[in-house]
């Protein structure tokens, strides 16, 4: 109370003295702060680009040697599909028995946003139901829709009625 009699600024309440910064002033984003924030995001982008450059060294993409058994050819009718997985990766694959009698094997994740694709035998296309992306069933090429890259494929080998898959010969 003595302080309030002697202090010429005593017209301010105790709360205002304890919290001198107004709320609007505290919440206001200045152009200076915004420019610094943009620079911070720019740094994040540079770090992201660096991550893309080194990620394959730290986490090498999945690759396997030799051939892996999938199933028997008789288990997959014409126009049918058989989902399978390979040891060493969580990636789902799909084996397709095309209407022309040949077999194809692709990763089942759409290259757009990783939805599970399926084979339409009447259209002879691989379709992504999420955003209506279409892939060529013969080579996995993008035919329509938002997918940016073809569907990664595996080479199919049929031996004694059994279906095996192996890494494609043209893979970089």
């Amino acid at each position: 109370m003595n302080d309030s009699m002697n202090n010429p600024l005593s017209h301010r309440s105790a709360a205002e003295a304890d919290f001198p910064i107004e709320r609007t002033e505290a919440e206001h984003v200045t152009r200076r702060e915004f420019a610094k924030f943009l620079c911070l995001v720019s740094g994040g982008m540079a770090v992201g680009s660096g991550w893309v450059a080194v990620k394959d060294r730290i986490f090498p993409p999945f690759a396997f040697e030799g051939e892996r058994y999938v199933c028997d050819a008789a288990d997959v009718p014409v126009g049918g599909t058989h989902p399978f997985r390979l040891e060493g990766t969580a990636m789902p694959f799909i084996l397709i028995h095309l209407t022309n009698g040949t077999f194809r094997a692709y990763e089942q994740k759409c290259t757009h946003l990783a939805c599970a694709v399926y084979y339409s035998p009447d259209k002879n296309k691989i379709e992504c139901p999420c955003h209506h992306g279409y892939f060529d069933a013969d080579d996995g090429k993008v035919l329509a829709g938002p997918p940016p890259r073809p569907l990664p494929r595996l080479d199919v080998v049929i031996r004694d009625g059994a279906i095996f898959v192996r890494e494609p010969d043209h893979k970089a």
């Binding site: 540079a46 680009s49 660096g50 893309v52 970089a172």
Partner: peptide
Amino acid sequence: LLTAALNESLDGNNAVKWPAFIASAVLF
């Protein structure tokens, strides 16, 4: 640069990622 490098990297083309990183760092 980031989206182009990521797309090319996922497609197996590794020629773009280091130039894209250097360009992004210079811009930063």
